[in-house]
Amino acid sequence: MLDILDKYDVLGAFWMTIKLTVFSAIGALVIGTILAVMRVAPVAILRRLGAFYVNTVRNTPLTLILVFCSLGLLYILQINLTDPNSSTSIVDNNIRWAIVGLAAYHAAFVCEALRSGVNTVPLGQAEAARSIGLTFSQSLREVILPQAFRGSIAPLGSVLIALTKNTTVASIIGVAEASGLMKEIIENETASFGVFFIFALGFVILTLPVGILFTSLSRRLAVKR
């Protein structure tokens, strides 16, 4: 089992998993926040657009989204996210498209987590904010969203853990992350519990602290009512 760690760059593969997770999480948080704002906005068309995005993306398999990003957008429509003539264009394009796909997919879940957070803020607060003369965006920024974020930390943690594990799907468009290396090792060394165990352990090491951190954060930061 240990010779596998010597022969293959397991840590490098997990480093790629971490990079995918971090960048996609940032992207998903930004897009998800915008979506959540759209879904609680007073403008009907924005609400419908937000709901349409969430319902479409959330109900599409991630595999499909990533294959669409790579095969559909990169190879058939030829939308490059890097210089197509560079000597690492395939690798760079795939990583970037994987991040775009993962961020777009998880944004739908971030949006719903945030919206549940918005629902923890009593309606009276929004009414009070508007009645002292704050505009919609001011009341959102100063009153509602800060409390919504604090109220939705636990579900956001779940989304982050799911995102970490979902990065494994990126191997199907050729990103050299952990599960891709696992396939390679199984091809060369044949499948064994040792290989399975190493990678399962790797993911537990990545996700368990995140879960503990977010649980304690949600306990400490939740708005006591």
Partner: peptide, 9 residues
């Protein structure tokens, strides 16, 4: 090593 490789499922 001079070849770029796209890998799919």
């Amino acid at each position: 090593p001079g070849v770029q490789l796209q890998e799919f499922g």
